[in-house]
Design a protein around this nucleic acid. Structure first.
Lengths: 206, 206
DNA sequence: CTTACAATACCCCTTTCGGGGGATTTTATC
DNA sequence: GATAAAATCCCCCGAAAGGGGTATTGTAAG
């Protein structure tokens, strides 16, 4: 009897593609494309394992994990994400996510990871351990906009809701220094206000 | 004779998945996973159309398009991206990219877009033009947070980068009226600043 | 040893936000 | 026609953001 698997990813092409790739190995009991549909579908189909995208509409993978853990204790949760950010990995481990696979994995790695998790062994993609700060995602935007590491750091803090004063305190910097960084960021991104910065940060997963 | 197609995407699972999905319709002459391999592969396989990811390692889709246009005049270029940023769309149009599809498209939309491009008709995903104003979403948020239609309207305008003054002018309202709406919105959403509002709006697709 | 750039810091100034009070008018509904 | 909700408008205030400069370090590359 093949293990029952649910795919949750809003990228329809990816969702469909993965189904095609692994339907020989698993019993694909469902596909969802929106975070808000996940709990319902899990309840109905009772999968053994769920492939969960982190960046889902309505409810993100982290919040979903919390909910799933409450209601379904035995279900295995495997993140399939393009993000390699350390804070994502960290949060996943804290939430006891069973596996973390990357979207640039091969079919074989995908199956290896799922099988491992089904056997009770956590599987975090080996590539996660051997990368430094910047993968090509950051590089891409660094090249496009010439953002320095400090600037990216400050963008993240602004995105997290901190104001200039708080950022200065957290980084042990003068208020004016952070103001200067903000000005430079705005100039480089051709924007004029914080709201536009938030949009930039969220849309580019910075 | 099926059209010859090349897939360039560093997400192996996506790349493979798409191949599986459309190999009935097209002759998949190659798959590449890194920007630096694209030109060589195009030279060797001479595809009619290339599905190109924007965020590729080594060389991004924009730069690759410039190079491809120089060397291969007749090849059709279709971006397949998760990004809906206006500046990406704009840049794509400037580079005369033949098509722009989203990764959350269905198999049918993908094929429709590719066929359209092969027939000489540009195809930019319709979702790109109507990314806003989803009325069904409205109901949900009205219920969850008791936001009024006017408040949702103003949230959208703030998200679009307008400040209080500009919103007042656009809606023919007094400045104080819009300020009051803002205050009420912040109260209802339990937030304190515009950056948090942007996050709320983007994360909830308002 | 220049050159270039990142990171730090300061000044002055205006505009915008955010929070605290109100109030009045329209509109829908019962 | 009373009631409730929504939409409109006003005052005051301090904090924060934004825009224009300039300047000093440190450091990596050439």
């Amino acid at each position: 009897m093949k293990p029952k698997l649910l795919i949750a990813d809003d990228h329809t092409l990816f969702n469909e593609g993965v189904k095609q790739l692994i339907s020989d190995h698993y019993n694909i009991v469902g596909q969802v494309f929106d975070g808000k549909d996940v709990l319902m579908m899990v309840m109905v189909t009772r999968p053994d394992v769920i492939l969960l995208d982190i960046n889902l509409p309505s409810i993100n993978g982290f919040d979903l994990t919390t909910e799933l853990r409450k209601a379904f204790e035995t279900i295995k949760i495997v993140f399939v994400s393009m993000y390699t950010e350390p804070r994502f990995i960290e949060q996943s481990k804290q939430l006891k996510v069973d596996g973390y696979l990357l979207k640039n994995s091969t079919k074989e790695e995908l199956i290896l990871g799922i099988d491992s998790v089904l056997n009770g062994v956590n599987y975090y993609d080996p590539k996660l351990n051997q990368l430094r700060q910047n993968l090509h995602h950051d590089d891409f935007f660094v090249k496009q906009f010439s953002l320095t590491p400090r600037e990216i750091e400050i963008i993240r803090m602004i995105k997290d809701g901190m104001n200039t004063t708080e950022i200065a305190e957290k980084l042990f910097l003068g208020l004016e220094t952070v103001k200067t960084h903000r000005k430079n960021i705005y100039y480089k991104l051709s924007i004029t206000k914080s709201t536009e910065l938030i949009k930039f940060a969220l849309e580019n997963s910075i």
